[in-house]
Amino acid sequence: MSSSCDPQYAPAGDVGAALMMIDSRLKSIRDGSTASDLEQRALTEQVVASLGPGGAEEVLDGTCTIIYMFMTWLRQAHEAEDKDVIEYVVPTLVATLRRMPRSIRPEAIPTMAGLVVAAGTGLSPNLWRRQYGDWTEEEMNPLEATAFLLAEHINRITDDPDFATRTIASALSLAEEGA
């Protein structure tokens, strides 16, 4: 039986722009960049503004698509080890988000956990979230942090600092070739 949150009904969004922002954040943290969070936020806003009308929503949908793809990869990796992805990913994600009180408001953490559980069970994160109303400004930092933390988790599992973004970029290239 098909769900209204089935990924086939979800807009993919601007996965390329979302991936660029996630990759930029990963590299700045890994390289110990001195760019402040305000500078990173200004860069993000500049990129979204350059995308034109609806650009922010396209990047938001793209970020949700990436979260879905990350959780699909993580689910397959955990199932290969006879483990439950929810059991191994969600508690670590929640604990990490809780340690970020300046960037992540506590009331956004259950939404991010639900978003990841939805993706981990094969549902579209953006359609799952839309059931509960429009996205709020307070959820943007947690959403970005969630995508970043999932990418970093995958990179640690694979012992490759670029594996997560490279995997998405490869999938994006294949999709463009097939279009």
Rank of each mutant, 00 (worst) to 15 (best):
M20Y: 09
M21K: 00
I22V: 15
I22H: 03
I22S: 03
D23H: 10
D23V: 04
S24W: 06
S24A: 14
S24H: 13
R25S: 07
R25L: 05
L26T: 09
L26R: 13
K27W: 08
K27R: 14
S28H: 11
S28Q: 15
I29T: 09
I29S: 12
I29Q: 12
R30V: 05
R30S: 11
R30T: 10
R30E: 10
G32L: 12
S33M: 10
T34Y: 05
A35K: 11
A35Q: 14
S36F: 09
E39V: 10
E39R: 13
E39F: 04
Q40L: 14
Q40S: 13
A42W: 07
A42N: 15
L43T: 14
T44A: 15
E45Y: 10
Q46V: 01
Q46D: 08
Q46N: 13
Q46A: 13
V47L: 14
A49C: 13
A49R: 15
A49W: 13
S50W: 02
L51C: 11
G52H: 15
G52D: 14
P53M: 10
P53C: 08
G54A: 11
G55N: 12
A56F: 07
A56E: 15
E57L: 12
E57F: 07
E58G: 09
E58R: 14
E58I: 03
E58M: 07
V59N: 03
V59A: 06
V59R: 04
L60H: 07
L60C: 06
D61V: 01
G62T: 10
C64P: 01
C64T: 07
T65L: 02
I66C: 00
I67F: 02
I67M: 04
Y68W: 03
Y68C: 00
M69T: 06
M69P: 01
M69H: 09
M69A: 14
F70D: 02
F70C: 06
T72F: 02
W73H: 05
W73G: 00
W73F: 05
W73R: 03
W73A: 02
L74M: 03
L74P: 00
L74A: 03
R75Q: 03
R75T: 01
R75P: 00
R75D: 01
R75Y: 01
Q76K: 04
Q76R: 04
A77Y: 05
A77R: 02
A77T: 05
H78N: 06
E79M: 02
A80S: 04
E81D: 11
E81A: 11
E81R: 14
